[in-house]
Simulated assay, not measured.
Amino acid sequence: MTETVAPEPTPEQAALFARVRRMMLIAGLTTALAVAAVLIAVGYRLFRSGESAVLTDTTAMLPKGARILSTAVAGDRLVVTLDIAGVTEIRTFDARTLKPAGKLKFANEP
């Protein structure tokens, strides 16, 4: 069989090959860095989500005659809608610690 012999590259071609190799090396390193960053972010999120929630026993005192109309979870907040003597009130609590986060009252205009 006959072998095909590639001619020696010209100086311009050699410079072009070197430039392409350098660009491919940069692209490969950039890709490796991006993949490492994603893996680190995913590992961090998995590590942080593994923390156990703090168990709390809390009793929230409601005004006399108050009724709970509804409860909901919004993000990291627990939302409780109350009816207090005909006035609607929304109370929010931190879902992790159950500490009060805010209070919103609704009243009719006179």
Score class of each variant (00 low, 15 high):
A36P: 02
V42P: 04
L55H: 06
L25F: 05
L69T: 15
T81H: 02
M23S: 05
T31Y: 09
I40S: 07
G50I: 01
L55Y: 03
L55F: 03
V42Y: 05
V5P: 00
V73Q: 15
A37R: 03
A101F: 10
F93K: 05
M23D: 07
E3N: 00
M1D: 07
A85W: 06
L29T: 08
T4Y: 02
G102S: 13
E3K: 00
V54S: 11
T4G: 00
E8L: 06
E89H: 03
A72I: 02
F17W: 05
A60Y: 14
N108T: 14
T92S: 14
T30C: 09
R91T: 10
A6W: 00
D94H: 13
R19H: 06
S70D: 15
T88G: 05
R19V: 05
P7N: 02
A107Y: 14
Y44F: 11
T59D: 08
E3L: 01
A74G: 08
T56W: 09
L98H: 15
M24P: 00
M24S: 04
V5M: 00
F106P: 12
V73Y: 07
V35N: 01
L104Y: 11
F106C: 13
A27Q: 06
V5G: 00
L98V: 14
R67L: 13
R91C: 10
R96N: 13
L46Q: 09
T92A: 10
F93G: 01
T30S: 08
P110Y: 13
V35K: 00
R48W: 06
E12C: 02
A41Y: 12
V42M: 09
A66S: 13
A14Q: 12
V54C: 01
A53F: 05
R67T: 15
A32E: 02
T71I: 13
V80A: 04
A72L: 08
K103T: 14
L104S: 12
F17V: 00
G43Y: 05
A32S: 06
M24A: 08
G75P: 14
K105T: 15
Y44H: 07
A34G: 03
K64M: 12
T2N: 04
L78K: 11
D57H: 12
G65E: 07
R77D: 11
T92M: 10
G28M: 05
T4P: 00
R91D: 12
I90N: 04
S49H: 02
A27F: 06
A41Q: 10
I26H: 04
F17M: 03
G50T: 01
V35E: 01
A36S: 08
M1R: 06
V79Y: 03
T2G: 03
E8W: 00
V80W: 09
M61C: 04
I26A: 09
E3R: 00
R45C: 07
G102Y: 07
Q13F: 02
E51S: 10
R67N: 13
P110A: 15
V20E: 09
L25W: 07
V80I: 15
A37N: 04
A15Y: 02
R48H: 05
M24E: 10
T4F: 06
Q13E: 13
V54N: 11
K105A: 15
F17H: 05
T56S: 13
A53C: 01
V54P: 06
R77Q: 14
L104K: 10
P63A: 15
Y44V: 11
D57I: 04
E3Q: 01
A32V: 05
A32K: 01
T59R: 10
F17L: 04
R96C: 01
V5A: 00
T2C: 01
